[in-house]
Computed example of a mutant assay.
Amino acid sequence: MDLEECRREIDVLDRDLTKILERRMQVVAEVAAYKKEHHMEIYDPRRERQVLDKIANLTVQKELSPYLRRIYQCIMDESKKYEREHMGL
């Protein structure tokens, strides 16, 4: 594959990822509403560890696992910020 083909494929993947991440953030807003209604904390370290471990286990190319864990940590950090905003904190 040449550089332009790679870039076109990345563009398609970015479009798909954006849709998926946008949907994920919509669900995060629902989680925030639930947590606010039930007086729950935003940060749940046990849940965060579970998600990161799940991602590591889902990764087929194990050498990518640390990169994907860091990407998901960023996603979760931004999700927590979004939750705080939706909870008015």
Rank of each mutant, 00 (worst) to 15 (best):
S65A: 11
C74G: 14
E37P: 01
L17K: 04
L58G: 01
H38Y: 05
P66D: 10
R23L: 12
Y82M: 15
D53T: 14
R47W: 12
E78M: 14
H39S: 10
T59V: 10
Y67W: 11
R15V: 05
Y43C: 07
A32C: 09
V28Y: 00
V28E: 15
P66M: 06
K35M: 11
I55K: 00
V27D: 10
V51S: 14
T59E: 09
L68V: 08
L17W: 13
L17C: 14
Q61S: 06
R69Q: 01
Q50T: 14
E37R: 11
E37T: 04
R47H: 14
D2G: 12
M25K: 05
Y34D: 15
K81V: 11
V27P: 00
E5F: 00
D14Y: 14
K81P: 02
E22R: 13
M76A: 10
M76C: 10
N57A: 15
L13E: 02
R7G: 01
E78Y: 09
K35T: 03
E48T: 09
K35C: 00
E41G: 11
D14I: 13
E30F: 04
L21H: 13
Y82W: 07
H38T: 11
M76N: 05
V12S: 13
Q50D: 13
T18I: 08
R23D: 14
V31G: 02
A33K: 08
A32F: 08
E5A: 07
R84C: 10
K35P: 04
I42D: 02
E63W: 12
Y67A: 15
I75P: 04
Y72V: 07
E9I: 11
P66I: 10
M25D: 05
E9K: 03
M1Q: 09
D53M: 07
E22H: 12
K62L: 08
K19S: 00
L52Q: 13
E22G: 08
M1S: 06
K35I: 05
M1P: 08
Y72G: 02
M87A: 00
I42T: 05
D2V: 08
L17N: 15
K81M: 09
R70T: 15
I42F: 03
R49E: 01
Q73H: 13
V60K: 04
C74N: 14
M25N: 12
E48R: 15
Q50K: 02
E37W: 02
M25G: 00
